[in-house]
Simulated assay, not measured.
Amino acid sequence: MRKLALRTAIGLAALLTAAQGSARELLDYWGQCVPFAREASGIRIFGDAWTWWEQAEGRYARGSKPKVGSVIVFAKTDRLRFGHVAVVSRIVEKRVLMLTHANWSRRDGKRGFAEQDVTLHDVSDGNDWSLVKVWYRDTGGLGGGVYPVKGFIHGGKPADELSGENPDYVGALIDAYVPR
């Protein structure tokens, strides 16, 4: 427990520095997805990621359509015991967007790192973003898992560093639509 508290404190310190600094510093964050999403989106919600959807009711606009700067809330599942939150950094097309988030892929065998402009593909039957696939660094493409989503929370003031200068739109579309 002390190790987790220390890791969280270090991650928050890095995030506070990042909020005042450059995009590179924002991407140097290491820790949980919740503090990262809160600072990167400006949406002031606390607690486990899966609780954000209900907490946003009456405080922030919510919906099923993405907007740049919105937080996407992944539902709690067996694979995502605390859910997951990420910030929409780019909209590529109707069923493909890019996220900036933390604590998803591994780097050097560890989770917790921030990633910018990661592909997210809507795979729901109703084209409503209720089921998604996420780009996964470990495989260099969309992971094999399909994740349920509660929706998008709108209304914060997103960080300027959400998206890179040259996001790979073509790569995102290839990841989403070309079978591996």
Rank of each mutant, 00 (worst) to 15 (best):
A40G: 08
D28L: 08
W30S: 07
L6Q: 11
T51M: 07
K150V: 05
L173K: 15
V73T: 11
R95I: 00
T17P: 02
G140T: 08
G112E: 01
A159G: 00
F152N: 05
V170K: 13
L99S: 08
I43T: 02
A102Q: 06
S130F: 02
R180G: 04
T119Q: 07
K3T: 13
T100F: 03
T8N: 11
Q32E: 14
L4D: 12
L15M: 11
R2Q: 08
F82T: 15
P148C: 06
Q116H: 04
G21K: 13
Y60T: 01
D117E: 05
G144S: 14
V88T: 07
S64I: 03
S22P: 05
P148M: 04
F113W: 14
L4E: 13
T100L: 04
C33M: 09
A49H: 10
F152C: 03
A102N: 05
W135V: 03
G126W: 07
V149C: 08
K65I: 10
G141L: 01
A23S: 15
V118A: 06
S64M: 05
K67G: 02
Q55I: 00
D108E: 12
G109A: 08
S22H: 04
L12I: 14
L16Y: 11
G109R: 10
V170F: 05
K110V: 04
Q32K: 15
D125N: 13
P66A: 09
I153K: 01
L142I: 10
D117H: 09
E115D: 12
R79G: 03
E54F: 02
W104E: 07
V87L: 01
G63N: 10
R38M: 10
D28I: 01
S105Q: 10
V123L: 02
I72W: 08
K65S: 06
L97K: 11
D48N: 13
V73E: 03
A56Y: 06
R79A: 11
Y29D: 02
R24P: 00
C33V: 11
A19S: 15
V73W: 04
K150S: 07
E25M: 11
G155L: 07
K65M: 02
Y177V: 08
A5K: 15
F74M: 14
P66Q: 10
S89R: 09
R62N: 04
T77F: 02
V134K: 13
G126S: 15
E57R: 14
I153T: 02
G58R: 07
D28G: 12
R106L: 02
T8Y: 09
W52L: 06
S124H: 09
L99W: 10
G144T: 13
R24K: 15
A176P: 12
S130P: 08
W104A: 05
E93I: 01
G47M: 07
T139L: 00
A172P: 11
G126R: 15
E161S: 12
P66S: 07
Y177G: 03
Y147M: 09
Y169N: 05
Q55K: 15
Y136T: 15
D78L: 14
